[in-house]
């Protein structure tokens, strides 16, 4: 035998999934939402998405370079972050503000904590919140959506989001199809659900988080006297439950951890919507639960096969 053999620890077979493949699946799942955004708010949405994605990838590349770490843009996670952030913005936001959001997401939240897998809050979500706090009026200026009911218009350039609009302004159909005010990716419920189904079929996400999140939010709505279906279809609940709360890095890896996490998200979403003066509870509730993830994981270590709880004094 001429050449040397490769020697390593078992296993010598590996599956063919990769980080890149997973991120690609997330991008594919977000495509319907991106297309819907273009239809509903015009091609400006596409420009916004392009700006965010390009900025995120560039920032990821530059910051890795400066920190002298190996390049990671190939894993496509920066593309996902850019896409998610864009979908969480109003269509006529100043591009500079959007780029500032990218800086927060990629540099401050992600890379300063060590890059993919190390951040403890969801980068796109954290960026959205920073922008919301820093530029409240720009972040809550909602351009009219294609086919939105006339009653929703506040003036020629603004319309109300379903959460602040008077009851009866929007029908369920309006919400399903995205005929309402809101950030470009959150308005159209149908495409988000479609993306979620794709992710579950591809086994990229487990259905636990979205389902439990939505179920809890519906239950809480009932309890506090809101219309559950309306609550689920409006605002960022679907986008949050399907794409933000399921972020690997910032959600628990254990099964019961996922349940607890999602219950918390659903609970706080409705509580914030009902009892705070912020109209939107999704971002804050997910962020809050992100921070609790290490605690939740500690509390939900799965029972290993053959593990029997030892009673005191039963030691052999």
């Amino acid at each position: 035998m001429e050449q040397k053999l490769h020697v390593s620890s078992s296993p010598h077979f590996k599956g063919n999934n990769s980080t890149r493949r997973i991120m690609l699946d997330v991008i594919i799942a977000l495509c319907p939402a991106a297309i819907a955004a273009c239809v509903i708010f015009g091609l400006r949405s596409l420009v916004l998405i392009a700006i965010c994605v390009a900025t995120c990838v560039l920032l990821e590349y530059v910051s890795r370079k400066i920190m002298k770490r190996d390049a990671t843009i190939g894993d496509l996670s920066a593309v996902v972050t850019g896409l998610l952030l864009a979908l969480n913005l109003p269509v006529d936001i100043n591009p500079l503000i959007a780029m500032f959001g990218c800086l927060i997401a990629i540099v401050v939240v992600k890379q300063m904590f060590g890059g993919i897998g190390m951040n403890f809050v969801n980068p796109a979500l954290a960026a959205r919140i920073v922008l919301l706090v820093s530029f409240p009026s720009a972040m809550m200026h909602w351009a009219p959506a294609l086919g939105a009911p006339a009653a929703a218009a506040i003036d020629a350039t603004t319309s109300a989001t379903p959460l602040v609009a008077e009851a009866g302004t929007y029908s369920y159909i309006d919400l399903l199809l995205g005929r309402c005010g809101g950030s470009i990716g959150e308005v159209c419920a149908v495409v988000l659900i479609l993306g979620g189904i794709y992710l579950v079929i591809r086994k990229v996400i487990s259905p636990i988080i979205p389902c439990v999140y939505l179920a809890t939010a519906a239950l809480m709505s009932l309890i506090v006297g809101l219309d559950p279906l309306y609550q689920l279809l409006s605002g960022g609940v679907l986008l949050g439950a399907i794409f933000m709360a399921t972020d690997y890095t910032t959600s628990p890896v254990t099964k019961w951890g996922k349940v607890i996490f999602a219950v918390g998200c659903g609970f706080f979403t409705i509580m914030l919507r009902q009892f705070s003066n912020m109209p939107e509870g999704v971002s804050f509730s997910i962020l809050l639960m992100n921070i609790l993830v290490p605690l939740i994981e500690r509390a939900t270590v799965p029972r290993t096969l053959g593990y029997i709880k030892k009673k005191k004094g039963e030691q052999k």
């Binding site: 999934n17 990671t72 890896v253 254990t254």
Partner: peptide, 19 residues
């Protein structure tokens, strides 16, 4: 190998239900 993305797939695959 690249960084762990905390996808949890290793937990689902572990027949001994470890982490």
């Amino acid at each position: 190998p690249s960084a762990c993305i905390r996808c949890g797939k290793c937990l689902d695959a572990c027949p001994m239900r470890l982490q």
